[in-house]
């Protein structure tokens, strides 16, 4: 098969790294060659962050470039707009409708664009917008927003709930497991 490319984008601290590791564990279970590329260090401090997951028979480059992503999972609206050029024509974008103001917006140096979801839909991309923060908080913690988004995404993958849950168990710390599993299940019921 041709190599597939998934991008996970968001704001440093939102748990994009953990989400990419869970996806990586699911794909490994599926018998694919997998590469997951992460960002550490300064970029993690509240900045725009991106991780890449690629899988197929044989994956070479660990990075995803403009026009190459089959799927973008965005943890925040502005980040979905920022990384849109990375989506392949006909690709899918799953986004969390949470809005986190970047520093230039906070200081008044820039404006947060309005109606991002509508504008994204007009580009012809296949968009799924959900309030994953609400789901996460319903499950018991805002921190589970990453796993809630995976729940939304999981419904349209070839992998069953058991494979996803096993990967979550492998990657999420013990004490946060119940809340994360709950967030995953609540989100999975949403038709992505």
């Amino acid at each position: 098969m041709e190599t597939k490319a998934i991008m996970i984008v968001g704001v440093g601290g939102q748990g994009t790294l953990l989400a990419s590791r869970i996806i990586g564990a699911v794909l490994l279970e599926g018998g694919y060659d997998v590469k997951v590329s992460e960002v550490h260090g300064m970029s993690q401090r509240g900045g725009s962050v991106v991780t890449y997951v690629k899988y197929g028979n044989k994956v070479y480059s660990p990075v995803i470039e403009k026009g190459e992503a089959d799927l973008i999972l965005s943890f925040e609206e502005l980040e979905a707009a920022r990384w849109l050029p990375y989506l392949k024509k006909g690709g899918r974008l799953v986004l969390n409708t949470q809005r986190i103001n970047p520093m230039p917006v906070i200081t008044g140096a820039a404006e947060y664009p309005e109606e991002i979801v509508e504008k994204l839909k007009k580009t012809g991309a296949d968009i799924t917008a959900v309030d994953a923060l609400k789901i996460a908080e319903e499950a018991g913690s805002a921190k589970a927003v990453n796993v809630a988004l995976l729940g939304v995404l999981s419904g349209s993958t070839e992998f069953g709930e058991d494979v996803w849950e096993k990967a979550i168990e492998k990657c999420v710390p013990e004490k946060a497991l119940d809340i994360n599993k709950k967030a995953f299940r609540l989100a999975r019921e949403i038709k992505g």
Binding site: G46, G47, R82, M103, P104, A110, Y112
Partner: peptide, 9 residues
């Protein structure tokens, strides 16, 4: 699109 530089937490 406004940039999102890293910031102090």
């Amino acid at each position: 699109i406004p940039v999102r530089p890293p910031v102090m937490c």
